[in-house]
Amino acid sequence: MASDAPAAAETDTQASNVANESGITPESLSKTLKEKLEAKYVDIEDMSGGCGQAFQAMIVSPLFEKKNSLARHRLVNSALKTEIAAIHAWTPKCFTSEEWEKRQRQ
Protein backbone atom coordinates (compact mmCIF):
# COMPACT_ATOMS: atom_id res chain seq x y z
CA MET A 1 0.00 0.00 0.00
CA ALA A 2 1.55 3.29 -1.11
CA SER A 3 1.61 6.37 1.09
CA ASP A 4 1.74 10.03 0.07
CA ALA A 5 3.65 10.89 3.26
CA PRO A 6 7.32 11.68 2.74
CA ALA A 7 9.72 8.94 3.80
CA ALA A 8 12.55 9.50 6.23
CA ALA A 9 15.50 11.16 4.56
CA GLU A 10 18.86 9.45 4.17
CA THR A 11 20.94 12.61 3.66
CA ASP A 12 20.84 16.21 4.89
CA THR A 13 19.88 17.38 1.39
CA GLN A 14 16.96 14.95 1.29
CA ALA A 15 15.96 16.05 4.79
CA SER A 16 15.92 19.66 3.69
CA ASN A 17 13.82 18.80 0.63
CA VAL A 18 11.27 16.84 2.71
CA ALA A 19 10.97 19.72 5.18
CA ASN A 20 10.47 22.17 2.32
CA GLU A 21 7.81 19.98 0.68
CA SER A 22 5.78 19.47 3.86
CA GLY A 23 6.08 23.13 4.84
CA ILE A 24 6.16 22.08 8.48
CA THR A 25 8.82 23.77 10.56
CA PRO A 26 9.26 24.41 14.28
CA GLU A 27 8.38 28.03 13.52
CA SER A 28 5.13 27.18 11.70
CA LEU A 29 4.08 24.80 14.49
CA SER A 30 4.87 27.42 17.12
CA LYS A 31 2.90 30.11 15.28
CA THR A 32 -0.16 27.87 14.95
CA LEU A 33 -0.06 26.89 18.64
CA LYS A 34 0.25 30.50 19.76
CA GLU A 35 -2.68 31.53 17.58
CA LYS A 36 -5.05 28.61 18.23
CA LEU A 37 -4.22 27.84 21.87
CA GLU A 38 -3.28 31.31 23.11
CA ALA A 39 0.03 29.73 24.09
CA LYS A 40 2.25 31.97 26.20
CA TYR A 41 5.35 29.88 25.58
CA VAL A 42 6.13 27.33 22.88
CA ASP A 43 9.42 25.54 22.32
CA ILE A 44 9.50 23.13 19.38
CA GLU A 45 12.48 20.86 18.80
CA ASP A 46 12.95 19.06 15.49
CA MET A 47 14.05 15.57 16.57
CA SER A 48 14.38 14.30 12.99
CA GLY A 49 17.60 15.99 11.99
CA GLY A 50 15.89 18.65 9.91
CA CYS A 51 13.54 16.60 7.73
CA GLY A 52 10.42 17.84 9.50
CA GLN A 53 9.16 14.40 10.43
CA ALA A 54 9.54 14.28 14.24
CA PHE A 55 8.95 17.06 16.73
CA GLN A 56 8.96 17.45 20.50
CA ALA A 57 7.20 20.44 22.07
CA MET A 58 6.84 22.31 25.34
CA ILE A 59 3.59 24.29 25.35
CA VAL A 60 2.29 26.66 28.02
CA SER A 61 -1.31 27.78 27.60
CA PRO A 62 -4.08 29.14 29.82
CA LEU A 63 -6.46 26.82 27.95
CA PHE A 64 -4.86 23.88 29.79
CA GLU A 65 -6.25 25.08 33.14
CA LYS A 66 -8.41 22.43 34.86
CA LYS A 67 -7.71 19.91 32.10
CA ASN A 68 -5.98 16.57 32.55
CA SER A 69 -3.09 15.47 30.36
CA LEU A 70 -5.30 13.66 27.86
CA ALA A 71 -7.59 16.67 27.40
CA ARG A 72 -4.56 18.93 26.90
CA HIS A 73 -3.10 16.63 24.27
CA ARG A 74 -6.45 16.49 22.49
CA LEU A 75 -6.54 20.29 22.37
CA VAL A 76 -3.05 20.40 20.89
CA ASN A 77 -3.74 17.60 18.41
CA SER A 78 -6.94 19.31 17.31
CA ALA A 79 -5.10 22.61 16.77
CA LEU A 80 -2.44 20.83 14.70
CA LYS A 81 -4.64 18.26 12.96
CA THR A 82 -3.33 18.96 9.45
CA GLU A 83 0.30 19.22 10.53
CA ILE A 84 0.23 16.04 12.63
CA ALA A 85 -1.17 14.11 9.67
CA ALA A 86 1.91 15.08 7.65
CA ILE A 87 4.62 14.21 10.21
CA HIS A 88 5.88 10.94 11.63
CA ALA A 89 6.18 11.69 15.35
CA TRP A 90 4.75 14.37 17.63
CA THR A 91 5.45 14.57 21.37
CA PRO A 92 3.85 17.50 23.21
CA LYS A 93 4.38 18.38 26.86
CA CYS A 94 1.61 20.67 28.05
CA PHE A 95 1.68 23.00 31.05
CA THR A 96 -0.43 25.73 32.60
CA SER A 97 1.39 28.99 33.39
CA GLU A 98 1.49 28.07 37.08
CA GLU A 99 2.91 24.59 36.38
CA TRP A 100 5.51 26.08 34.04
CA GLU A 101 6.61 28.72 36.56
CA LYS A 102 6.92 26.07 39.28
CA ARG A 103 8.94 23.87 36.94
CA GLN A 104 11.28 26.78 36.12
CA ARG A 105 11.93 27.44 39.83
CA GLN A 106 13.01 23.85 40.47
Rank of each mutant, 00 (worst) to 15 (best):
L75R: 08
Q14F: 09
A57Y: 02
S97Q: 15
A79M: 01
S69Q: 12
T91I: 08
S78M: 00
K67T: 09
E10R: 14
T91Y: 06
L75F: 00
F95W: 13
G23F: 15
L37W: 03
I24E: 00
S48E: 02
P62Y: 12
T11W: 14
T32F: 05
A2V: 10
I44D: 03
E99S: 14
Q53R: 14
A71E: 11
T11M: 14
S22F: 02
L63G: 05
S3V: 06
S3N: 15
K34D: 04
K93P: 02
R74N: 04
Q104R: 12
S78R: 09
Q56R: 14
S22R: 11
E27A: 15
G49M: 05
A19I: 04
W100N: 15
P62E: 05
K66A: 04
K102F: 06
K36T: 06
A39C: 07
R105N: 12
N17V: 04
R103I: 11
G49I: 09
A19H: 05
M58N: 11
A86M: 06
T32V: 15
T13N: 10
C94E: 01
E38F: 09
I24A: 04
E27W: 03
A79W: 00
K81G: 01
N17C: 04
T91R: 03
E21F: 01
N68W: 04
K31I: 10
D46N: 15
L33S: 03
V76N: 01
S48L: 07
I87D: 00
A19S: 15
A85T: 07
C94M: 08
E99R: 14
P92V: 07
F95E: 13
T11V: 08
A5Y: 01
P62V: 02
D43F: 09
A71L: 04
G49Q: 07
A2E: 15
A7Y: 08
R72P: 00
T25M: 12
V42Q: 06
A5W: 00
G23Q: 07
R103H: 10
Q106D: 10
E38Q: 11
S22A: 02
A8R: 09
C51Y: 09
R105E: 13
I84H: 03
L70I: 15
T11L: 07
A8W: 14
G52M: 03
I59D: 01
L29K: 07
S16H: 12
G52T: 08
L63S: 02
L33R: 08
D46V: 06
K67Y: 07
A7E: 11
T82H: 04
P62C: 03
W100L: 12
T11Y: 06
S69W: 07
A5P: 00
Q56N: 07
Q56S: 10
K81Y: 01
K93H: 11
E35Y: 14
K66W: 13
A86N: 07
K40S: 10
A79K: 03
L70M: 08
